[in-house]
């Protein structure tokens, strides 16, 4: 089933986000590995972006030069990204069940153009803003005015290149560049505040010359408002700090950061399916 070009209503978006969350569970458990918890925290962010009328794109003409760009910088949210692309009609949903298997284009982390809609390779972190700047500068030279969205992880913001990119995006006045940070407060080995503190986080972005918006990253309406606001902000790039919950939707995953980077075993998946009320 694919979603139509028309933006979905809020209740349709919620229903779709729910289905995406369930699909992430199924395909990672089927694959026996992957990062469901890092995917679940960003479900609403990508749902709003792809289906809420924010991203201008054409699933059947994936490399349309005027398309808005979506760059997945936190590549480990691949299960989410693939699910969203399939829902949008970029490729057949059946492919999702080949995740992480030999011969499948559905790689553990996305590879540039391995499937329609995959703008960039990711999996080594920290590259998204820089790559996005390239798309902004290229768009300017081509006389195109598309927007560029980059999804970052919070732990990813420990990478030095994020801040090289942040400095350059402000320097080049990339006001059509919008970075969304999936701020779920956990990295692989524990709470970010304990492992490598990011705070004061919003201040860091402001100090680098960015507009900063903050919202509840699971509130579709708040996300849509933030995207709309960001599109109206001029002269500087915008960071949307989306406050999220790692493993959102599955209580025992939310409560335990050691679920980073592993799929749920069949018995755990049964519990999760029940909690999520996946049909």
């Amino acid at each position: 089933m694919t979603v139509q070009d028309k933006p979905l209503s809020l209740s349709q978006l919620e229903e779709l986000a729910h289905r995406i969350r369930c699909t992430i569970l199924e395909i990672t458990t089927h694959a026996g590995s992957g990062h469901p918890s890092s995917s679940w925290s960003a479900v609403e962010i990508l749902t709003a972006l792809y289906f809420g009328g924010v991203l201008r794109h054409r699933p059947h003409d994936p490399w349309w030069p005027e398309r808005d760009r979506f760059i997945l910088s936190k590549g480990h949210a691949a299960p989410l990204f693939y699910t969203v692309l399939a829902e949008a009609g970029y490729f057949d949903r059946d492919l999702l069940w080949t995740l992480r298997t030999v011969g499948s284009p559905v790689e553990g982390h996305p590879i540039r153009r391995r499937l329609p809609g995959i703008e960039n390779t990711s999996g080594s972190l920290g590259k998204g803003i820089s790559l996005g700047i390239g798309h902004v500068l290229g768009g300017r030279l081509n006389g195109l005015s598309y927007r560029v969205y980059v999804l970052l992880g919070d732990g990813e913001c420990e990478e030095g290149q994020i801040w090289e990119g942040a400095m350059a995006a402000a320097h080049f006045a990339c006001d059509n560049l919008c970075a969304i940070v999936d701020y779920n407060k956990y990295q692989e080995t524990g709470p970010i505040s304990r492992e490598m503190a990011l705070e004061p986080f919003a201040e860091k972005w402001r100090a680098f010359g960015w507009h900063v918006l903050e919202c509840d990253g699971h509130d579709l309406s708040a996300l849509l408002t933030s995207f709309e606001q960001a599109a109206g902000l001029k002269d500087r790039p915008t960071a949307i700090i989306a406050h999220t919950v790692k493993g959102k939707g599955v209580s025992f995953v939310e409560a335990d950061y050691t679920y980073h980077g592993r799929a749920l075993k069949p018995a755990e998946a049964d519990r999760a399916r029940e909690e999520l009320r996946c049909r």
């Binding site: 030069p65 790559l131 390239g134 798309h135 500068l137 030279l141 350059a168």
Partner: peptide
């Protein structure tokens, strides 16, 4: 990385 983005723009 910026160069890679420019390449993707043709």
């Amino acid at each position: 990385s910026i160069g890679a983005g420019l390449a993707d723009c043709g």
